Simulated assay, not measured.
Amino acid sequence: MITIKEVAHHAGVSMSTVSYVLSGKRSISEETKRRVEQSIVALGYHPNAGARALASNRSQVLGLVVPLRSDHNMPVIMQFVSSIVASARDFDYDVLLLTKEAGPGEAHRIVARSMADAIVMMDVESADPRVPELRALDAPVVLLGMPDDHEGLSCVDLDFAAAGKQMVNHLADLGHRSIALIGSHPSVYDRGTSYAARLLDGFQSAASKRNLSASVHSCAPGYDSVAACLDDVLRPDRGTTGLVVHNEAILGQLLLDLRRRSLDVPTDLSVITLCPDDLAESLAVPLTSMAVPAQELGAIAVEMAMARLGQELAPEVRLLQPRLTERGSTTAL
């Protein structure tokens, strides 16, 4: 392994000069700086992470808080994680993945122990108990999600309320008068998860505005759970003709069960969903969908956190507008 001493010898300077070039703590002439940088490239030197942290008072680590729960759809979660890791590497940062449930005090512990310079937090609740702590934290924090009380916090997310409204309006514009929302696992609503609550609010407000008959059903994954959910959704007295599905984990099973019931999509039942594009395209029946832009959201969260390192930037909230892609799973009545 190449050492700083070897770089200094190759460049014809002292070890302290190389250190100052790496840390930027002292002004070095452009000629000397160029010579040191050329030696670093020529020798393939990589600064030791610990030494770099001491020199800069930074750990070069981004903390990612993402509790792994049984009601999470792991393939979608991993799209967010992979985007955050890749984006952090663009800033020469590593990612510390914290997967246990993080209550109040966890973010302070991470920062106080110099485990991370900034934090991105997922799995945000509408009434998130961590909000007071996050406001007082002496480090950048970006929420991938948006609590109801987000004053003073930086957040980025999909506009789930707008997504719920647009999916309802899409079905209403096609003439559907009785629709249903098949939503997330019951525990997601019990926990007060922000994204689920906001989509539900958008769904209900749009259905009311369009004078639609609308029912709401939470659904756990698994054959029996999906079958029982559809038994309720498709009760004859409901007359349901359009489904909004906000539950990636059940989409495959739902389509199989509709086929078992001899129901054709979209002839007998129109279906629109919120999920990543690659999932919507790969199903037995490609579904018209609102995209979950996991790659874009993860990259923006990292950029917002990095921009706030060492700078007093005002908190900001970025809600990405949903994008509808039609794939033929909805039709006019």
Rank of each mutant, 00 (worst) to 15 (best):
A51M: 11
R198A: 13
L174D: 04
M115K: 14
V120G: 02
A299N: 09
A301E: 02
V95L: 11
D149E: 15
A127N: 14
E316H: 08
Q60N: 15
V36E: 02
T3Q: 10
N48Q: 11
V265K: 07
L309T: 10
L134A: 04
I4D: 01
H170E: 12
D257E: 15
L199I: 15
G183A: 14
A206H: 06
L212K: 06
L97V: 14
C275I: 06
V292A: 06
L283F: 08
H217E: 08
S213M: 11
S208W: 04
M115W: 10
L258P: 01
A163I: 07
G242P: 08
L22D: 04
S82R: 13
E303P: 01
L199H: 02
S82V: 00
R191D: 02
L199V: 12
A55N: 05
L309S: 07
S213K: 14
Q295V: 13
D138M: 14
L153D: 01
C219A: 12
A162C: 12
Q38F: 01
R89L: 09
G50S: 12
M290R: 02
G252L: 06
V41A: 15
P75C: 05
S56N: 14
F203Y: 15
A139V: 11
A180Q: 04
L274W: 00
R238S: 08
S208E: 13
V142Y: 00
A214G: 08
L283G: 04
R69Q: 14
S82K: 11
L287M: 09
S178M: 09
H10Y: 12
V65K: 00
S178D: 12
Y189L: 07
Q38S: 13
A161D: 05
L333W: 10
V131H: 03
A139K: 11
L263M: 15
S56L: 13
S29T: 15
R259M: 08
E303I: 01
V21T: 07
A305S: 12
V95T: 15
L269N: 03
A284C: 10
N211L: 13
K33W: 00
D268L: 09
F91N: 08
L212C: 09
R109T: 07
V188I: 09
S59V: 08
L98S: 09
A305D: 00
P75A: 06
A207G: 11
A139L: 10
S289W: 00
P221C: 08
P47S: 10
V244K: 00
R34M: 07
M290F: 11
Q79K: 12
R135V: 11
V302H: 04
S56V: 01
R308E: 06
V13I: 12
I300T: 13
I179K: 03
L319E: 00
R52C: 04
S194E: 02
I110V: 15
D157E: 08
M306H: 09
H217R: 10
S27T: 13
A332F: 06
L309K: 12
L255V: 08
V233M: 05
R35T: 09
R69Y: 10
R198I: 00
Y189I: 02
N57F: 10
D231T: 11
H9C: 02
A118Y: 04
V292Y: 04
S329D: 04
D232N: 14
Q311N: 14
